[in-house]
Simulated assay, not measured.
Amino acid sequence: MDLSEEVQAKMLQASLGARQHSHSPYSGYAVGAALLDEQGRIHVGTNIENAAYPQGWCAEASALTAMVMAGGKQAVAVLVTGPGPDVITPCGGCRQKLREFAGQDLLIIAGDPSGIKQQWTLGELLPFSFGPEHLSSKA
């Protein structure tokens, strides 16, 4: 999927803005996510750490929650930002969470405060994935 430069710029600003709300006192690594849904709306999320480390959640999961709460059903694209300069991608768990609401063609864009760095499809980052359609036929 190709997104216009205007939509990508809006998503980048939304993701960077979400980073400002990160609760990351342990790692100091603020992450933001901006998720575009099937209705063209942008939903944001940030990482929230917890002293009991496995109990925190990622920016992408937060954005998915915002999308579902707003009535969104499908993710079209997600833009994730970190502090830079290293390019970040959704973690394995978030790749699977995104797969619940998108197919292999989901556009995943990485950015940082200096701009957009790279993009992939979910299929490139999570090949041969298991999704909802696998449960639709019972053998």
Rank of each mutant, 00 (worst) to 15 (best):
G84A: 09
K97L: 15
C94G: 02
Y26C: 06
K138F: 13
G56K: 14
A66D: 10
S114D: 15
L35K: 01
E124H: 07
K10N: 15
G45Q: 03
T65A: 12
G56R: 11
S114M: 15
C94S: 09
K117D: 03
R99G: 00
V44L: 02
Y29N: 07
C58P: 06
I42Q: 06
V80C: 06
G32I: 01
S22C: 13
E124Q: 14
G123R: 07
A18P: 02
C58R: 10
H43A: 07
T121H: 02
H134E: 10
Q74W: 11
S24E: 10
L98S: 01
G131N: 03
E133S: 06
Q74E: 14
Q96P: 00
N47G: 06
P54S: 14
S15V: 02
H43D: 08
A66P: 05
S15C: 08
V87C: 14
Y29D: 09
G40Y: 00
H23I: 11
A51M: 09
P132K: 12
S62C: 14
T89Q: 12
A63D: 00
Q74K: 14
S136A: 15
R99T: 01
R95C: 05
S136R: 15
E6L: 13
S4Q: 10
V87D: 13
A70C: 10
P25G: 03
K138M: 12
S22W: 05
K10R: 15
G17K: 12
G40Q: 03
L12Y: 07
G84P: 05
I48F: 08
V87T: 14
G28V: 07
